[in-house]
Design a protein around this nucleic acid. Structure first.
Lengths: 123, 123
DNA sequence: TTATTTTAGCAACATTGTTGCAATAATAAA
DNA sequence: TTTATTATTGCAACAATGTTGCTAAAATAA
């Protein structure tokens, strides 16, 4: 996979942001005309494939992207996410790993935990 | 809120189904021409408002609707959901309530827990 | 039965995401 | 450095999904 301007800039955005970013966020944050919106979709797919970012589906169905911080060790995204209805931010609560016990027979491949409400900064 | 054919049929579908249903599922399951797709959206909104159903956002962003079984007591939808990538079913795991501890300052209003993988019937 | 108000249907529109194809840019090879 | 190879981009077109406004129809209250 090749290193391109779009890819570099998008990864930079996601990495530097302390909240998770949606496709729309990224489109707005990128310098106007840097790349087409289709390119953003494709770059995000590549970054996911390469394991540089992970995605969270928000409570409203919008996909948000976050950099993989603790994934150097292993790719587990079983941490909680919080979506604030006031400031609209979506954040990874990296240290909150809900515990649960499944009946036998379930093979889990993906996890998506989201809470919605008001975040500490907004309350 | 009024009782209409569409509302009755849609609630019936959701209640009788042992998997959660998306808007598309409902559209397909309803007798052809029973109502417009816009009506389905509006009926679902009303059923949600009345607390007769709850919704789960699947790992692919698709909203699925489920009847409220244990909600006569209190409306808490903190149970797990499972999305099978083979049979495409989304189900409520009513008895699985993940436990987690949030830092102070978070006010939780909605919960969306989804696991994806292969369900017991498909493995 | 009539009056009132919600609900349905339809058309139009907005948003979001996908695909095919030719042009372009990044990398490998010479 | 130059050329060849192949991934990536932009654009247009399309599909799917969800929303809104308006009028007609249906459900409930009077």
């Amino acid at each position: 996979m090749r290193k391109t301007i779009a890819k570099t800039k998008i990864l930079e955005l996601i990495t530097r942001s302390n909240t998770n970013l949606s496709h729309a966020d990224i489109k707005n944050l990128l310098p106007d005309g840097l790349c087409d919106r289709v390119t953003i979709y494709r770059v995000l797919d590549r970054l996911l494939q390469e394991g540089l970012i992970h995605k969270v589906v928000n409570i409203d169905g919008v996909v948000n992207y976050a950099s993989c911080k603790n994934c150097e060790v292993e790719h587990s995204h079983n941490h909680m996410h919080f979506s604030c209805e006031k400031c609209k931010s979506v954040t990874c609560l990296d240290d909150i790993n809900p515990s649960f016990k499944l009946p036998k027979g379930y093979a889990v491949k993906e996890i998506n935990f989201v809470l919605s409400g008001v975040c500490p900064s907004c309350s």
